[in-house]
Design a protein around this nucleic acid. Structure first.
Lengths: 351, 351
DNA sequence: AGGTACCGTGGGAGCGCTCCCACAGGTGAT
DNA sequence: ATCACCTGTGGGAGCGCTCCCACGGTACCT
């Protein structure tokens, strides 16, 4: 009881110490109960819980963060301008999955955009201040310095969509190769002969893998791959339009298009319409993401579904492991933590 | 120099005390410099800043939060399910405005959804723990208990879209009356005779005001208001379709529709198309929000623009005032802080 | 009987900051 | 010369928690 003065002002929030006094136990014991330590007798635990309830005690996060050197918060960092983030159903679906997963934990989720240089600088400050226990990285392009920064600061991170085959960060991804492959196999089964593809940004590893899947399906079906039918898009609707226009010019008789995102498929559809091609009669169209766009398109779009919610869950649990594991960094080593989840083709009227 | 031991471990982040030692000043002085207090001589300030730079000092937020009893964070609370949030361009535009405004400050923005009961409970916990200095409330419906909770906990809050005419919380809004009015005046000028409206949710005050604007414009033009031409929507595309269908049934000869959101206008447009009505030849269409949807619609949609970015700025600055003002709560009183920003009609091909 | 092993428990020390009081030194009025 | 009053500065106390050491008690061994 020495030291500390300044108690008992009017409408203050109760402290651990007050709960302890009320329950007739020591501060340490209350702390143990709050944090779910098993080393507390049942009777004591009950008494403490009663006191907590009576006083309406809620732990002070700042104090806890200071003493324990953790923040109980993780950040979802989006290295894109906000506009793109919201335009892209992939992101919002991902956010929903992550949101659902995190609400099973005590962690708090921060959404941080790092699209502009200025936002980048702010983020660097933020991370340097260790204001989060870990970071979720979404859609990082090859060459982005962010992962290195995270490494330097020794902040646990998980990346969705590895940057390359030898991604060093723990990662979660869907089976882009299999997804691309299944889309094309589907078109082959439907009897299509000239199958083009509008790809995603080529500096995104997952986009490359989808192209690999496209190639794989054709080759395994004993067909040739015509490089002129592979057109780079950029995941935007406008990009889809441009690519489709070019595709039509290059190869007017094509009868199927695999667009590697629903948004690009929507752009492609417009161009096809304007060119008088009927979907699916003249040209079959397949998208990727199975987003709301796909369901609402006219005709409804066949699309490759990624298990986004599960991906969100996987990211959270990988990251929590990573955070729990702040041991000497030695014991990890070779166990590369990569999760790859299967995709599923959702067939609709467009193919 | 008494007390405190435990310094100088290996790769730790520098503390205030270390910066002070390096600069040859006291702890308090460094704190003053960091916090921009004017009561520091220029020479001292320079010395401290040099030390900060050399050491790469970044303040520990947890310690600061504990000592100063503030968090430097504010939450944007969205009392809607995440799905709706992302579907609604209004929200994402608002978020963009708020994001831009906050990046001029030292505050951190948290995005919190409180759509489900479970999310609500979590939010209540979160607020009870005072983990944010203030709250931005977006799109709160009449009867929502959230504002009261905030009041009880004495957490500063600003609401966008007041709940009623006698909103007690500081609020920011656009001129919904004027916006609705300008839409209808525009249609009248264009020579339209039978002008219907698809309203927003009736428990949203702003939606009511838009209807009032609709009525006002008609009456002032010496026309009658036909109640059968006022159909409630719910801000969704599906709601827009339903309302338009009903409207067409009730009044097949209508020649103009004012939809009180772009999303509903998109729904209405579909129905009009399917019914063989040409836009704007047969029916003129005006939306509200001037979102990306409006610009990309075919034909481009005339819409009422709300200055969303400015609204975001206004919300942030009101809230910061509110936070700064935690004085005895007496000195405020009557000065109701309400900001109303003007709207602007953006005429396009749909009318 | 004494020793060893664990419980469950209390409470000191400390996390890194802000707040504020005390104090030195300068300035100007009396 | 005395007093009052600024300005700039140092550093004690304290924010509310976690960590961890030390303690008394019980249970089980020798």
């Amino acid at each position: 009881m020495a030291g500390h003065g300044g108690r008992g002002r009017s409408g203050r929030r109760p402290t651990l110490e007050e709960v302890a006094a009320r329950a007739g136990v020591g501060r340490g014991t209350v702390s143990r109960v709050i944090n779910g330590s098993p080393r507390v007798s049942d009777a004591t635990r009950a008494a403490v819980e009663a006191a907590v309830a009576e006083l309406g005690y809620v732990p002070n996060t700042a104090a806890r963060a200071l003493a324990a050197n953790r923040t109980d918060a993780i950040a979802l960092v989006v290295p894109e301008p906000e506009t793109r983030f919201f335009a892209e159903p992939y992101f919002s679906d991902m956010l929903r999955g992550v949101g659902a997963a995190i609400s099973d934990t005590e962690m708090q989720l921060l959404l941080i955009f790092a699209g502009s240089d200025r936002e980048r600088r702010r983020l660097a400050q933020y991370l340097a201040a260790h204001r989060v226990d870990g970071v979720l990285l979404v859609s990082v392009h090859a060459g982005d310095p962010l992962p290195d920064l995270l490494g330097q600061l020794e902040i646990p991170a998980v990346i969705s969509g590895p940057r390359s085959e030898e991604e060093t960060l723990p990662s979660v991804d869907s089976d882009n190769y299999g997804g691309g492959r299944s889309a094309v196999e589907h078109l082959i089964e439907r009897g299509r002969s000239t199958i083009a593809t509008i790809t995603g940004r080529l500096d995104v590893y997952g986009a490359q893998r989808r192209i690999d899947g496209y190639r794989g399906a054709l080759l395994d079906a004993g067909r040739e791959v015509d490089e002129r039918l592979i057109l780079p898009g950029d995941f935007t609707e406008e990009g889809g339009r441009r690519a489709m226009t070019e595709l039509l010019a290059r190869c007017p008789h094509l009868d199927a298009v695999f667009a590697e995102s629903d948004v690009m498929a929507a752009g492609a559809r417009q161009v096809l319409r304007e060119a008088g091609r009927r979907i699916p009669d003249d040209v079959a169209l397949v998208g990727y993401d199975d987003s709301a766009i796909a369901r609402h398109m006219d005709p409804p779009l066949t699309s490759v579904r990624q298990p986004i919610e599960e991906m969100g869950h996987a990211m959270i649990s990988l990251l929590l492991d990573e955070i729990a594991d702040r041991r000497p960094a030695v014991s990890r080593g070779l166990e590369r933590r990569q999760v790859v989840l299967p995709t599923e083709l959702i067939a609709r009227a467009s193919s």
